[in-house]
Each structure stands twice: as C-alpha cells, then as structure tokens.
C-alpha cells in the first residue's frame, strides 16, 4: 500500500513546528501503524534525515505510552484500540494521513509527536490512591466486595492513562481519566474512607493544570481505547457534589 503522510515536526518544546510531507510505499496491510512509522524512520535514516520521534512502548495496547492524533481521531479510525494496535488495513490505498501530536495546554510537546503527559501523574499524586503503607493490612477476604462492584471497579481501573480522552475532547478535558480513578476507589469499600477528600483534590488539581471542563460531548468515551464509560464521569460529579455538600469541614 501507498500513503501520503503529513507529519508534525517540531525540534523541541520551544521551536516552531510545521507539517512535513512524506511519501511511503510498499506497506503491507498487516503492518501496524507504528511499524509503518518505523519503516518511514528507517528510510529517513537511509537518506541522512532525522527520524520522527514518537512515544511507544509495549505495542500491545496496554501501557498507554503511544498516542497519535490521526486524521482527526485520537488513536486513529479504529475503535477500542491504541495507535500501536491500529493496522494499515484500516486505511485505503493512496490515502493522505495527517499525524498530529496530542494537543492540550497541559500536554506540552517535547519533540515531534512526543508530548509530556506528566500532568496525569500529578493528578494521581493528589489523591489517586488509598493511603496504605506496606504491611499491616487485613486479610484480603476480610473485605467482601460484591462481584458487581468489583467488576465495575475493574472496568474503571482498566484506564491506561494514554491521554486520548484529553486529545479527543474539544475542551481538552481530563474528566474521563480523573473519573475512572475516582470511580474505581469510590466503588470499593477500601476507597470510601478518603473518598471525599480524594475527589476534591483530584478535581482541583485537574483544573489547576489547565485542562478544560467537561461539556458532556463524550468524544472521550468514543475514542477511549479501553472503552471507559462516561458513567464514570456522572459518578465523579455525584461524588463531587456529595463531597462539597457534606464534607466534615462544613459542619
């Protein structure tokens, strides 16, 4: 297969970026999107040009490291997959493919298609955990959890933190990411103890970092490679309202 690639090139965080045209040929339809970029990079090295930088790691859709905005869609045209699991057979021969990095104020570009997503880590550090230290915990079975809740918590917890929700959202909002973590813990009895402070701290950090607000368009849900449900955002809102109106400090 043959493609015309339109790739965002940017030397470093401060430089001005631009779109560069590349033509690529002889691509097997079974080739993954990132492998196609590997081939492009090898050809660039052959021509003494600088290869295109892009983040990737596990290449099996679980680490959340890869993420490209391809032809107007985070992680490209296939649904329920990350960029590394997207295959070239999803494109038509000769198609022009425009590849852009995630764009959001809290995700500054490092180089080419690589962005800095440490904002997500900062949100988690505000309260995306249960404050236990190692040792001194009770037996696993002494906290019974209904199967339904455990399954729901698992669904929320399957977020891979890739940032597609932010990239796809017209407001660059991180609500799906935050809500997945808040939901996971608010569904589990272990997480209930810190639930009220957790939701407030995480939301305020999210706002502080410059993510946009949610306007319930659910582009995040549509592009999430792990199909995290927007129900989690509703749960986050509910937790937030409860926390704001009933937190101990108020009374």
């Amino acid at each position: 297969m043959k493609f015309k690639l339109n790739i965002w090139r940017q030397k470093d965080a401060k430089s001005k970026g631009y779109f560069q045209r590349y033509d690529i040929d002889n691509i097997s339809p079974d080739c993954s999107f990132l492998e196609m970029l590997d081939i492009l990079n090898e050809s660039l090295v052959d021509k003494f040009e600088h290869p295109v930088c892009f983040d990737n790691d596990c290449r099996e859709g679980i680490c959340g490291m890869c993420g490209l905005y391809i032809n107007g869609q985070a992680h490209g045209p296939d649904s329920g997959v990350t960029t590394c699991q997207l295959h070239m057979r999803r494109f038509t021969d000769g198609q022009t493919i425009t590849i852009e990095p995630w764009r959001a104020k809290p995700f500054p570009i490092i180089k080419d298609l690589v962005v800095d997503r440490s904002a997500f880590d900062k949100i988690i550090q505000e309260g995306g955990y249960i404050s236990v230290t190692t040792g001194g915990v009770v037996d696993g079975n002494s906290i019974p959890i209904s199967k339904e809740k455990a399954d729901k918590a698992m669904d929320a917890a399957s977020c891979i933190g890739c940032g597609a929700c932010v990239a796809a959202c017209k407001n660059a909002s991180a609500m799906l990411f935050v809500s997945a973590k808040v939901s996971q813990f608010s569904l589990l009895p272990q997480g209930k103890i810190e639930a009220k402070t957790r939701v407030q701290k995480m939301v305020s950090k999210m706002n502080e970092l410059g993510f946009g607000g949610c306007t319930n368009t659910y582009a995040c849900q549509a592009e999430c490679p792990k199909s995290i449900s927007r129900e989690n955002i509703a749960r986050l809102n509910r937790e937030f309202i409860i926390a704001k109106t009933t937190s101990e400090e108020l009374f």
């Binding site: 249960i130 918590a153 996971q184």
Partner: peptide, 22 residues
C-alpha cells in the same frame, strides 16, 4: 499471601465471586 492482602488494601480490583470473596 501478604502480597494479596497488600494489593487488596490498595484497591486492586481482583475478581470476586458472588459471595464477594476473592
């Protein structure tokens, strides 16, 4: 065995049976 207890306390959503047990 300690690992399982530790992870449950951290909120790892291990699969449960219908009685709510691991």
């Amino acid at each position: 065995n300690n690992i399982i207890d530790q992870c449950v306390a951290q909120g790892v959503p291990f699969a449960r049976d219908y009685a709510g047990m691991l």
